[in-house]
């Protein structure tokens, strides 16, 4: 479903070139729960921007749901983001002074989905994200951090994207709320959704079935949970 072939991103500032990403290739199948982990400056944010169709690579190919996104224009990328990708950000990024409901159906606004249908879809997404109905008409800045992140997850789910991309989703939450949010992602994954989680904390990455480790712009390690267990067993 997702295939990266020799993804490379080079930033130029004056005469110096920075290799943010170098020759990265991997595949992610539908229904996988993948964590991308790496220290800051490792290139994982750059990779996330590519995967989220926010940016295009300097060279290489990126197939998302059969489309080669790597050569798309800004507006074409916007269409891909609108139809295929749901974002969950560290800072939640909700519209302030807007109701929970308006926040959730924001992606549907750009898909020009009729209003009656929006309420239905938002309702379903909120249930999946595990937020009570009583909060529907609250303003987003009246909610707690955990509730805000649930609204953000509901927003990511609302248009039934092929891929949910979560960038440090627990970074602004206390560890207990973080666990609950991570459990929500697990639950969504069990329901068949493809989830990519970007983080720099190893214990968070361990919630995923597969962990891709990035270092200095290259893949250092790509391991599945079952393999890790095996390795552990052998060592014991």
């Amino acid at each position: 479903m997702i295939e990266c072939k020799n993804l490379t991103k080079i930033y130029k500032t004056g005469n110096t070139e920075t290799r943010a990403l170098w020759d990265v290739s991997f595949k992610i199948k539908e229904g996988e729960f993948v964590a991308i982990i790496g220290p800051s400056g490792s290139g994982k944010s750059t990779l996330m921007h590519m995967l989220g169709a926010l940016d295009t690579p300097t060279s290489g190919e990126y197939f998302l749901d059969g489309n080669d996104v790597s050569n798309f224009s800004d507006d074409e990328l916007a269409v891909i983001r609108k139809k295929k990708i749901g974002f969950v950000f560290q800072a939640f990024n909700l519209l302030p002074r807007a109701s929970v409901l308006r926040n959730i159906y924001l992606p549907l606004v750009y898909e020009e989905i009729p209003r009656e249908k929006r309420y239905e879809m938002a309702d379903k997404a909120l249930k999946n994200a595990g937020l009570d109905k009583e909060h529907y008409n609250h303003l987003s800045n009246q909610l707690s951090g955990g509730q805000m992140q649930r609204v953000a997850i509901a927003r990511a789910l609302v248009n039934n994207p092929a891929l949910i991309l979560a960038d440090e989703p627990t970074g602004n939450l206390d560890s207990k709320t973080g666990e609950v949010i991570l459990d929500t992602f697990k639950k969504l994954n069990k329901e068949g959704r493809t989830i990519i989680l970007i983080t720099h904390e190893k214990y968070i990455a361990e919630h995923a079935d597969r962990v891709i480790t990035i270092k200095d712009g290259e893949i250092e390690n790509d391991s599945r949970k079952s393999n890790q267990k095996k390795i552990k067993n052998i060592k014991e």
Partner: peptide
């Protein structure tokens, strides 16, 4: 808004 799919 742009990340969520708003075009120019």
């Amino acid at each position: 808004r742009k990340a969520l799919g708003a075009q120019n």
